[in-house]
C-alpha cells in the first residue's frame, strides 16, 4: 500500500533519477526563464540539443514523455497555426484570401512551439524522474532562507508530505465507502447526472467525517511522540549533493552567457 506512487514518476536508475532533487528543481526553475533568451535558430538549436540530451540521460521511455505532452499538443498546434497565418513578415509563401503564410510567420510559429515544447518537456522530465516526496524535501531545503522572514517553510513541507503520504490511504478508504454504498443500492456511475451528483453525498459525508477523525488521531500521535515543529528534528531521507549536481548547475549557469552572446 505504501508503494503506490501518485503522479507521473517512472522508477529508473538513470543519472537524472539519481540526482539531488535540489539541483533538478533549481535547473528546471532557471531553465523556464532562460528559454525566453532564445530568439534565433542558433539559440533555439542550443536549447533543443540540451533538451534532447536531458531526454536521453533520463532513459525514460518516449511513451511516458509523450503522455506528459499529450494534454498540451493541441495548444501547441493552435499557437503554431495562429502564428503561422497571422504574423506578416518576411516573404510570402502562400497568399489566398484570408490566408497569408510568410517565412517570418512560419519562423515565429516554429520558435514559439519549440519554446512551449521545451518548457513542458523540462517540467515533465522533473516529475518523471523525481518522486513528489523528493521534490517536497528539495523544496523545504531550498526555501530554508525564507525561514528568516518567518515564512513557515517547515510547516509547508510537512503539510505536503502528510498530504502525499495519505493520498493512497484515503483513496483506499474512498473505494471502500463506494463499495459499501453500492452494496446499499447507491449508483455512482450510471443513471442521470442529477442522480449521480446526489449519489456523491453518501460518499463525501463519511469520507470527510473519517478524514477529520484521522487528522485528529494523527495530531495526537505527533504530540505523543514529542513533535514541536522543526526544532531539533532529524530526517529519515537525507539529501545528497554530488558532483553530477554541481555539473548540472554549471551547465545551466554557462548557458546564460552563451545564449546572450548568440542571440540576435
Amino acid at each position: 500500500m505504501m508503494n503506490i506512487i501518485i503522479g507521473q514518476y517512472v522508477p529508473g536508475k538513470s543519472i537524472l533519477h539519481h540526482m539531488d532533487p535540489r539541483s533538478k528543481l533549481l535547473a528546471v526553475f532557471a531553465l523556464i526563464f532562460i528559454v525566453f533568451l532564445a530568439n534565433n535558430w542558433v539559440t533555439y538549436g542550443v536549447i533543443v540539443i540540451l533538451t534532447l540530451v536531458a531526454i536521453v540521460l533520463s532513459r525514460v521511455r518516449l511513451r511516458f514523455i509523450y503522455k506528459g505532452l499529450k494534454p498540451i499538443l493541441l495548444v501547441i498546434i493552435i499557437t503554431f497555426v495562429l502564428n503561422a497565418f497571422f504574423t506578416k513578415s518576411g516573404e510570402a509563401i502562400f497568399d489566398y484570401g484570408w490566408f497569408h503564410l510568410t517565412t517570418g510567420g512560419l519562423q515565429q510559429a516554429a520558435f514559439i512551439s519549440v519554446r512551449l515544447l521545451v518548457i513542458v518537456i523540462m517540467t515533465t522530465l522533473l516529475t518523471l524522474t523525481t518522486t513528489p516526496i523528493d521534490i517536497t524535501d528539495g523544496l523545504e531545503n531550498l526555501l530554508r532562507p525564507f525561514k528568516k522572514l518567518r515564512f513557515p517553510v517547515h510547516e509547508f513541507a510537512l503539510m505536503m508530505s502528510i498530504a502525499l503520504r495519505f493520498i493512497p490511504t484515503l483513496m483506499e478508504e474512498t473505494e471502500k465507502i463506494m463499495k459499501a454504498q453500492t452494496a446499499r443500492g447507491v449508483e455512482f456511475s450510471s443513471g442521470p447526472l442529477t442522480q449521480r451528483i446526489k449519489a456523491i453525498l453518501p460518499l463525501l459525508v463519511p469520507l470527510f467525517i473519517s478524514a477529520f477523525k484521522r487528522a485528529e488521531d494523527l495530531a495526537m500521535a505527533m504530540e505523543a511522540r514529542g513533535y514541536r515543529g522543526d526544532i531539533g528534528r532529524t530526517k529519515l531521507r537525507l539529501l545528497k549533493w554530488g558532483l553530477k549536481d554541481s555539473l548540472l548547475l554549471l551547465v545551466v549557469i554557462v548557458l546564460i552567457p552563451v545564449l546572450v552572446l548568440l542571440r540576435g
Binding site: I6, E155, L158, M159, M160, I162, A163, L164, F166, I167, L170, M171, T174, L207, F208, A211, F212, R214, A215, E216, L218, A219, M220, M222, E223, Y227, R228
Partner: peptide, 21 residues
C-alpha cells in the same frame, strides 16, 4: 495552543489529500 496548531496542520494536510483524490 500547540496541539491546536498541530491539529490545524494535519487537518489541512488531509483536506489537501482529499482534494487530490
Amino acid at each position: 495552543t500547540q496541539t491546536n496548531k498541530v491539529l490545524l496542520l494535519t487537518e489541512a494536510a488531509i483536506m489537501i489529500a482529499l482534494s487530490v483524490i
